[in-house]
Amino acid sequence: MSGPSPGSTKQVNTEPPMPEAKEQKKSYSPTKLIVKRFFANKLAVAGVFMFLLVVIFSFSAPLFVEHDPAQTNPLNTYAEPSADHWLGTNSSGQDNFARLVYGGQISLQVGVFIMLIVSVIGVVLGSISGYFGGWIDSIIMRVTDLFLIFPFLLLVLTVVTILQNVNVAILVITLGLIVWPNITRILRGTYLTLREREFIYSARAAGATDLRIIMKHMIPNAIGPIIVNATIIMAQMIILESALSFIGFGIPAPTPSWGAMLNEARSLNILTGMPWAWMPPGIMIVITVLSINFIGDGLRDAFDPKSSRK
């Protein structure tokens, strides 16, 4: 990180952690200190481990999954678990295990790409709004107000309905364009504090341009809130994608999705008599979201040890 002590925000204090007595002797850099604090957090490490397992499980699918997740078989619907179909088959005769593994790829891709889109939009608009202030700040903040007041799921549903024929790319772009206000607000708050700090005045006095100040001083000092909020958004988006697929507004069949797999549980027979058909995707969503939340909590505590909950 460059620049002297940064400011604090509502969610995460961006101030570099004050080294403790022992750590001062070893004189860790702020980045090393953050990494050290992160890996000292058992839940965060467990989160990384769980998340890596989910990623490996989902993306190494071709190595151990024999069935095509989209292949239907009307003669073999609702099959029970067997050596051929480890988790049985669904109402279309598709292999549940293959859909579980490939569905993970979709959820993770959606989560990561939306996180990237939202972070970029949030950083750009948050930087402009927080650094420049004035009328441009007012306009950006009123637009964020509009997005934040609207019941989120309804807004997404309306847009998805209007677009029709949604695929992964359209869903990612749509959600990315709707979810940015939260991170923008948080970054604006961070920038409002940062821009009044001495090192920013010094940079201005030294003749640094606005772009340079933002890129070299503001963003590096706001990296904590950016990363922590990015992880929160990723977890939220995985839940949202599965919720949309669950109610039939997400990625259309035959593309596998955890949410669409859970939709089978709407049938009472499957809900009560075939837990293998809907439990695994639910558990995978829970594991993935919890692991990302653990990582997010660990990062928050690593960037701002004062924020840790007791």
């Binding site: 669950f246 809907w278 639910g282 829970v286």
Partner: peptide, 21 residues
């Protein structure tokens, strides 16, 4: 705290299954 990280629809399905059981 943990419940807020879980998908609401999954919790509702599980509650329904428990009640039916």
């Amino acid at each position: 705290q943990g419940m807020q990280a879980l998908p609401d629809f999954f919790i509702i399905i599980v509650v329904q299954m428990v009640v039916l059981w």
